[in-house]
Amino acid sequence: MKDATKMIIDQLTGGSKQLKILSIVGMLGLGKTTLADSVYKHPSVNIHFHVRAWCCVSQVYQKQTLLSELLDQIVEKTYQGHQIEEEYFSQNLYQSLKGRKYLIVIDDIWDIEAWDALKRIFPDDQSGSRILFTTRHRDVASEANSISYPLRLLSDEECCKLLWLELFDRETCPPDLLIISKHIAGYCKGLPLAVVLIAGILKKTEKNRDSWEQVVRTLIRSHGTRNIHFAKLKINKLLDLSYMHLPNFLKPCFLYFGTFSEDTTISASKLRELWICQGFVQPPDLGH
């Protein structure tokens, strides 16, 4: 994603002073959020803007919660969103951004109505401010009049390199696994998330041809065809397979994530305490 990262950073930090809207567009698993995050955290972007803030919309969202999250990042003050009217957050967010060069990243916008509900809150003071959002839907990017960056599928060679990087920490593969690794990468049909999920499964198996061929056979049985196109299948299929390969004691820990709302930021320390309360893991003082 180096080329895409550079192009987006150039658009964010250069050009006219007018408020500019950019979008990263692509199907599930192409790496939209990963790309947006790398841009957001880039040093040149960090020093260019007076303020930066990030929020995630998702398919189901609460506007007041989003506004509260953005305001917390900009004015560094915690608000109790359920006790304050939504208009309060809208007005304060607008005033906090006015006259400042800001970057707002809005991750995972599903429909144009979500954007329409938010766009009036962002002032255009000819200060060089930018808004970057990610979406799976091209029509959302078009209707928002954004400069769109559609993400492409990876080539088979890039899928191989990503698979090797995940499994061997380098872009090369042991000779005895070279052919089977290319075979597996080919099943992913250019979808990075599919590569990463399969790599996660392979990490739990022995690094030999027989074990990896067994994973391939399992994939074929799961989908009933050798012409697998992960871009058109639910990622749930691969997640199911990943779940099957988890040790039994870890399965309830994984399923517990279902108690959190989509795209929630989860505190590791809080999660550990919840797992302990549920009896999934033992407290550290017991030597586990």
Rank of each mutant, 00 (worst) to 15 (best):
L153R: 13
T172P: 00
H137D: 03
K207V: 00
V196Q: 08
L177A: 05
D156R: 12
E171M: 05
D169E: 12
S127E: 15
H137S: 02
V216F: 04
L167P: 01
E157F: 08
I180T: 06
G186M: 09
F133K: 04
V140H: 10
L132T: 02
T205C: 14
I184L: 10
A194N: 07
S155E: 14
E157R: 15
A185P: 00
K182I: 03
L163E: 08
S181V: 02
H183S: 10
L197C: 07
A199F: 11
L162I: 02
S148L: 07
V140P: 02
R217A: 07
E171F: 03
L132Q: 06
I201Y: 08
Q126C: 07
R209Q: 13
L154H: 01
L178E: 12
S129N: 04
R152E: 15
L165V: 00
C188K: 01
T205H: 12
T172G: 00
T134E: 11
P174N: 08
D210M: 02
G128N: 07
K207A: 14
R136Q: 14
G200A: 04
L197V: 15
K161C: 07
T218F: 08
W212K: 01
S146A: 14
L202N: 01
A199M: 07
L153D: 13
Y187M: 09
R170E: 10
I184D: 00
W212I: 01
Y187I: 08
S211F: 09
V195C: 00
K204L: 09
L167Y: 12
S181N: 02
I131V: 12
E206H: 11
